[in-house]
Design a protein around this nucleic acid. Sequence first.
DNA 1: GTCTATAAACGGATAGAC
DNA 2: GTCTATCCGTTTATAGAC
Lengths: 198, 198
Amino acid sequence: MTHSKTSGKAASKRERLANAAAQVLHEQGVATTTLADIARAADVPVGNVYYYFKTKDQLVEAAIDAHAQHLRQLISVLDALPTPQDRLKALLGGWVEQREVTARYGCPTGTLASELDKRADGLDANIAEVMRVLLDWAEAQFRAMGRADARELAVALIAAYQGISLLTNTFRDPGLMASEGRRLERWIDSLGSAASSA
Amino acid sequence: MTHSKTSGKAASKRERLANAAAQVLHEQGVATTTLADIARAADVPVGNVYYYFKTKDQLVEAAIDAHAQHLRQLISVLDALPTPQDRLKALLGGWVEQREVTARYGCPTGTLASELDKRADGLDANIAEVMRVLLDWAEAQFRAMGRADARELAVALIAAYQGISLLTNTFRDPGLMASEGRRLERWIDSLGSAASSA
DNA sequence: GTCTATAAACGGATAGAC
DNA sequence: GTCTATCCGTTTATAGAC
């Protein structure tokens, strides 16, 4: 391999491109984003991009990897918290904190998943994997709370987030995310290890 | 105006194009869909499209109108049912029935909203309006159930649908929609005119 | 009103100089 | 390893014949 994954000093040009791709693809979507857009954001000449990524798809793939990396980091922070309720609520808190960005551009993972599912390339499997990691983590929290229906609850929680992200974005209204965040918090509180109040 | 909105007999070429656009844009997304794709689906020669729609955006707009029309029709059917609970559950039932299509292509309105929000054109306002009609209708049902937090519940319901549509599509798993549909049905049942069990 | 041929623009990708 | 110039396919959109 020609490129070391992480050089000791500043981000390599390859990393700069991957991170720029993650950001610009989130803001503009993959369809409307040109290689020139990404190159400009990374402050790299257009033609030079092809030295690091042979196709646009490889750049999209690198952006997904960047999101996956970010998710792993988030999870490791959450896992330091004492109870599963704390961990889930901290996840919620992060979503609400990001509400302004979400109102403008939607959920980074969700919008990407939505767009990639329409394309022929196999990248949809990559983004599905990222989503599955989050789903599995949430399921583990509900299971730690003693819920037998942990998977269903995890699906409901992530779906609630993806859905409210879409509405927040569609109506450009961060308040929707804030309000739904509070509702979900009450919902988590209401889930003892007992009843199955849907 | 040159074109009558509805000629007595078969769908006009303009209508054929609008309906073909609605379907193909759902299946492929606006970005990857070419005018040639829509023209082929409508069985109209490519160049001729421009006689009816001056730009691709106008065709997208017509597709959104078709979705709005479809929604109004659905609502008028639901409104014939006796109780708000019946009406909401019938809405759920329709979503679950469509789960195979959703697994393949996502929610028609949601995927469109997600994609249009990334584009410079003003079409995002059009699709937001469609979403708002559904939201307002759901709110009216919860209000008829005596809930003071009707708007919040309506947002939660539509968000749940949009979110589970995204997951159903991402994982190509219709079972997710079926399972979440049952959960939401129990949730609606649990909402008396009394407690605010989030 | 309907359709064909083609112009005009754009964007992904490559060749090759430095 | 870095960058410029350019090719080439695709797609939107138009001109104009029928």
